[in-house]
Simulated scan of single mutants.
Amino acid sequence: MAPEASKTSIPIPERAHTRRAARGRALAIRLGPGPAVIAAAALGCLLIGLLYLALQVRTIFSDQLKQEYAGLVLEAVERAESARSLVGVWQQLPDATENKTAGYRHARTELARRLTSLAALVNASPSAAPRVPAFLLAPDADLRDTDAALSAVSAWWRAQRDADSADVRVRIAHVAHTLIAAAALLFCMLITALGMYAKRNRLLAGQSHEFEWAALHDAMTGLPNRRKLFASLEEAATKPPALTVPCKIAVLYVDLDGFKQVNDSLGHRVGDEFLIAVSKRFRESVRKVDVVARIGGDEFAVLVREFSTNAELGEIARRLIACVVQTDKEMGVGRVRASIGIASFPDSVDDYQRLVAAADEAMYRVKRNGKNSYAFADQAR
């Protein structure tokens, strides 16, 4: 069996590339904008949109108040115009009687009162509206000046009410468009955040799978390691049998003879290439349900599930030895062979947890008896 020095062989370039790729993915996860950043951006846009909406709503209320004020002024103008029409009616009466004179004076007094109310509204407005002159408030004011003033005040405030109404409609349209844009923006940001969250979860799940795979497999050959072998062994031994016949499993412990000289004479790079090549042949020579594991520097184990006779195990052992010979011949090494120990459960070993140790003991028997062969655990005793 080769010493532990062979276990610390130099990593091949693929391992370094895999590590760099894993570090790159981890760095991308750390540096890339996460869902929290997207949520913060969405919240910021929402706050800005709400501030804009608040200003628009405030302006709309202000314009509505202006419209109501203009309506009050126009109502006062209509009352003043009604009083002016009544004065004209009294003027057109043909007879100059005492009754006509009293009625005309009463109409002029009512007109002056209506104009005073109108002037109070107009002059109190914060807008730059045309004021009602004070001389028009007298009962004997010139009616032509009164007509001109009423006409100017009415025209200005109607135009102001129409402008405020149009401004309200425009601002309501802006509010509606802003709400639609904000809803669309929030929806897009939500979809983006969910997509990034799902992508990050996939990346993390992929990294977790890679870490789990690395913990259960040999980094150089890609074969299961000792930990994975024992887990598979326990799973196979404790699996309920499909039929009444108990499940029979076996472990073939493989040690490469002469592998240390390969590392010493040809270098670790050639040794690594040899291990990779023979691992591939081992995997191709057994069934897919069986497990080929690398458990040491030049030590391998094969877990065989559900065999019938020892002759089947012997055939597997011969194929494994042939794999080593073929690899040695192909690479031109000329000195590597294999010693294999075989232990089965429950035939030769009644405790599946001792299968690997029993196969290892059988393998040492082969080494003591000339190597490049195989032996069963019951024969080793």
Rank of each mutant, 00 (worst) to 15 (best):
S6V: 12
P11K: 00
R30E: 10
R30F: 07
I38Y: 12
A42G: 14
L47P: 05
A54C: 02
T59P: 03
S62P: 00
G71H: 05
G71W: 01
L74E: 11
A76G: 14
Q91H: 08
N99L: 14
T101L: 11
G103E: 09
A107F: 04
N123K: 04
A124H: 02
A124S: 11
S127Q: 12
A134R: 04
A134K: 04
R144E: 15
V153S: 09
R158A: 14
Q160L: 13
A163C: 05
I172M: 15
I172N: 12
I180E: 13
A184T: 10
A184Y: 03
F187E: 07
M189I: 00
L190R: 10
L190K: 02
L204P: 01
A214C: 06
M220G: 03
T221E: 02
K228L: 15
L229A: 01
L233R: 04
T238K: 12
P240Q: 09
P241F: 01
L243R: 08
V245A: 15
V251A: 07
Y253H: 10
L256S: 07
Q261I: 12
N263R: 04
D264R: 04
R269P: 02
V270E: 12
E273V: 01
L275H: 01
I276C: 13
I276H: 03
E284I: 08
E284C: 09
V289E: 12
G297N: 00
E299N: 04
V302T: 03
V304S: 08
T309S: 15
T327E: 06
G334M: 06
R337V: 02
I340A: 02
F345A: 06
D351K: 03
V356L: 15
A359N: 06
A362R: 00
A362T: 04
F376E: 01
